[in-house]
Design a protein around this nucleic acid. Structure first.
Lengths: 194, 194
DNA sequence: GGTAAAAATTGACCTAGGTTAAGACTTCGC
DNA sequence: GCGAAGTCTTAACCTAGGTCAATTTTTACC
């Protein structure tokens, strides 16, 4: 169970056994049923989650009342409403399981303590958030520069198993298009592929 | 000159004089003329910049040959091609001065040393990048959820002096619309304000 | 200070993607 | 295993925003 977490940390830092153990003691394993929520808009987000198994979506509800996905988190992703988690103010996002999902949950309080006790974790999360920023920045550039079809192609290439695991309406919402239009695009691609 | 930097650091951490002095020794003050480039696409990005005075734009050139702005950096912003800076691989972005600009420049090598010598800096940049991520995430949600006019209103509200300092075609590129359409939108707003 | 280039505006026309609605196909609860 | 609800598809029509081109305004340069 913790092997996946260890592998994840090892991408950026080396932790000795003692530090890893301390981290592990502060994590709580939880499972969530498909469709249940880990985070609710309007509430203060208490936890950051490491996805061990499953699939989550982070979304908000815009002023027109529509759900818009901002990210999907699969195995080995860290996910939270970062604004709410770090400011400890009410957030705007919902986090929902799209499959039965197992996570390791880290509270804000535990995280602050760990950062003091294991300075390398500051480095780990710094690098993690740099990469998250770069990915979001690229996504903005895609929104600005590419057509819906180009963004869709890019999406299925980057997340090859997404097509199987994620309902189309969720993918459409992530891409910023309607499910109807995604459906039409797929029909076009079928007729005139590549 | 360093007061602005000190204020910036103080937003998230407290540095003693010794540490601040060490940081200062690693920074190099540079000035760039309007229209000159600090970073070139295709090159490895050697520096991160703290903007002391002036205005920069970070942009790429997409496959259709169009320049697209991903961010404007004004006084007290940190800016770089983070992907290239951190990976030390060739980047895709250009960083250009839109006004005569004074920056403090920090090399990758100096930064790595500083992070080891002043662990609090890990914390500082971690928080900085969390906030940068949150802002980009919100920008993605705006692209997905709002009309061009709503995004324009939001932009001029968030950056009140942008209208004076930044040419319209640059703002249009940032918003993901054509200069022609921005112009027409402004005409509409003039006729039917609010 | 005059002119050449760049930026902004305006107008006619076009298209990617949205909207609404109806039918078909899946999924899920009992 | 069956009905209800949700999801996906298809089609007709609509609109926000793009394209192209001509005109005016601003900026930059000798």
């Amino acid at each position: 169970m913790y092997e996946r977490l260890k592998a994840n940390l090892n991408r950026h830092i080396k932790l000795d056994d003692e530090a890893f153990d301390l981290l592990r003691k502060n994590l709580v394993a939880k499972t969530y049923k498909k469709d249940s929520h880990l985070i609710q808009s309007g509430h203060i987000c208490k936890y950051t989650y490491f996805v061990h198994k499953g699939l989550l979506r982070l979304y908000d509800i815009n002023e027109k009342g529509l759900e818009k996905n901002t990210l999907f988190a699969i195995e080995e992703w860290w996910v939270s409403d970062l604004y709410s988690f770090h400011s400890q103010k009410p957030g705007n996002y919902f986090l929902q399981a799209l499959e039965d999902t197992e996570v390791l949950q880290l509270s804000k309080h535990a995280m602050e303590n760990l950062l003091l006790q294991i300075p390398k974790l500051e480095r780990f999360f710094r690098i993690l958030h740099i990469n998250a920023f770069i990915a979001q920045q690229e996504r903005v550039m895609f929104m600005i520069s590419k057509t819906a079809e180009e963004r869709y192609r890019d999406f299925i290439q980057k997340y090859p198993d997404a097509e199987q695991r994620i309902p189309q309406k969720q993918i459409a919402s992530y891409l910023g298009i309607t499910p109807e239009f995604l459906s039409r695009m797929k029909a076009n691609l079928r007729d005139a592929p590549r």
